[in-house]
Amino acid sequence: MIALLVRDLKLSIRAGGGALVGVLFFLTIVAVIPFGVGPDLNLLSRIGPAIVWIGALLSSLLGLDRLFQAEREDGSLDVLLMHDTPLVLTVFVKCLAHWLATGLPLVIASPLLGLFMNMNEVAIGAVMLTLVVGSPAITFIGAVGAAVAVALPRGGLLVSILVLPLAVPVLIFGVSASYAAVEDPAPFLPPFLILMALTLFFAAIGPAAAALALRNAAD
């Protein structure tokens, strides 16, 4: 399993710079927001955490549909499917590698974008913390969509459409926790703990459903 993790990390570093494209997309999305809403710093700092979270959500969906599609194209998926490690674990490790290669760079890039959005230090820290905890959930739930994409002649966009409604809870609690850290009356801990719970829940259900879909999508 370590071998799979290492291989996927190597691949994402060498092949086409997937992580870099994700971060660039993230930067671009967040950078165009001020052009839409105007350069009002107060407004930007108010909507900042939400914008950074939405940007991260969209960017982490960006490369996700390739998670299993790439394996299928060169035939590796067949061998992965035949070997029962069990399959759920294989999928879990692939998700983990994908998150390390594309999700973690987003988290690391988020403070810079927080500065662009005129957020204060506490808000930046809160957004980073919630992203660390919450973005794996997006990868895990997205893995289901990626597994479905294997059966599709042309996947891509449809996967995002299917996955985004399911990611609504992660977004809600990620953003609520970020705001709660800044705004005084709202408590930070409850939404943050729920966010953690969501990540754990999706870590269990996502790979299981993805494995089921992969078994059924083979042709």
Partner: peptide, 12 residues
């Protein structure tokens, strides 16, 4: 199983 495709990564 040795299929039509080689199950090898071009980048590695």
């Amino acid at each position: 199983y040795l299929g039509h495709r080689n199950a090898m990564k071009r980048e590695l």
